[in-house]
Design a protein around this nucleic acid. Sequence first.
DNA 1: GTGGTCTAGACCACC
DNA 2: GTGGTCTAGACCACA
Lengths: 122, 122, 122, 122
Amino acid sequence: MDFKASKSIYQQIAESICDRIISENLQPGDRIESVRDMAAKMGVNQNTILKTYTDLQQVGVIENQRGIGYFVSETSKQIIFNQRKKEFYDDILPEFLKQASLIRLTKEDILPFLNTLNQTIS
Amino acid sequence: MDFKASKSIYQQIAESICDRIISENLQPGDRIESVRDMAAKMGVNQNTILKTYTDLQQVGVIENQRGIGYFVSETSKQIIFNQRKKEFYDDILPEFLKQASLIRLTKEDILPFLNTLNQTIS
Amino acid sequence: MDFKASKSIYQQIAESICDRIISENLQPGDRIESVRDMAAKMGVNQNTILKTYTDLQQVGVIENQRGIGYFVSETSKQIIFNQRKKEFYDDILPEFLKQASLIRLTKEDILPFLNTLNQTIS
Amino acid sequence: MDFKASKSIYQQIAESICDRIISENLQPGDRIESVRDMAAKMGVNQNTILKTYTDLQQVGVIENQRGIGYFVSETSKQIIFNQRKKEFYDDILPEFLKQASLIRLTKEDILPFLNTLNQTIS
DNA sequence: GTGGTCTAGACCACC
DNA sequence: GTGGTCTAGACCACA
């Protein structure tokens, strides 16, 4: 994982964790890497990871068991789903349509790209 | 215009100016609002507008005639078009597809939204 | 302000800010000290203050205007009031009664202490 | 027993044991659960219970007979009583009054709650 | 071992 | 000037 400039590191890591949960590579109840381990794995400072984890905890995606570690919450998938859906319909889709329109794209221009969506997810 | 947290103010203003140019509400040769006027209109600091204008000037979208003001350049439309296209295919479209896929949307879910694209633009 | 061991510094500072708001020494719309100034004033690190401020922002007590500073939100008083009330009736009062009961205190033992409550607040 | 975030687990368990002693459900001379049993009963690590017991032993509330177990000391009730009284007048009562004052409660608001104190304790 | 707090200091984008 | 990110490292309480 290499960090592009656009988003802060701790946000990118949070997003990648959410991606793992929503794509079911990480299940509710699973323990996630300890702060130290994740920091080493990602090559960043422990504080950066801690920021990621406390942020995710605050929205209810992960939970902390004192002295043991962070665990994926039971409600995590639903929380992420709702948040992503809202973001998609409120921000991403409108922006997508606006930009497509401004560069004069038609429905037919876009259609081919949508075919990737109907593939079954491994 | 109210400013979202995601993008910086000067960028949002720059984008809105580009939008006006690309949708032909602002023509090459037109003079744009003075720094002072724009700042008042937007309710922001003049330095912020100055940053917007110098950025737009640097990419060749507007030109400065000293003591007179800023003017939309002849090449502005083409410049914006190219930049927007690149941005669309490099960033917006891939992100759009990724997010749509993660929330399990299918081609059929998206299709209805694309109909707005084929309407003639006012 | 000297920091006792029981609560973390950033929480104590957050609490003191909330106290100032709820006792109306700090009004909605007021700008609070900059991160640097508050850090200097309190004799702590800037990061500690930043933690305080972002926490308060997250619950909606203060708001951030980019590049300018943090401001007391319009809803701050109500938010703090609700939170304090909940805390009082859910935690403080029951604990108070439980402990008073365990050390065999009667209504008459407590009564005198309550007289301080009916004084007008300056 | 479920553990709130505010206090550490070993402290909460210690407190619950003291509660049992002070309310005379546990008498001087009684043997308390073994570390192993208590850990199982509470669903926590044995080290946590050990910490609880050694702490209680240090203040003289329980005593250890090597190879046999932990026993409630003769002086336990008095020790707990004194400590609780100090805590009540130094911490709980002042905090109680401060918070009650900040949310604008009057003597009359509090009075009804005090009636529970004069009931004979079972 | 676990998370959490705090410091000191650097560096950044933004207003 | 403002906030915000990140690092390196120390130290702590807790399980």
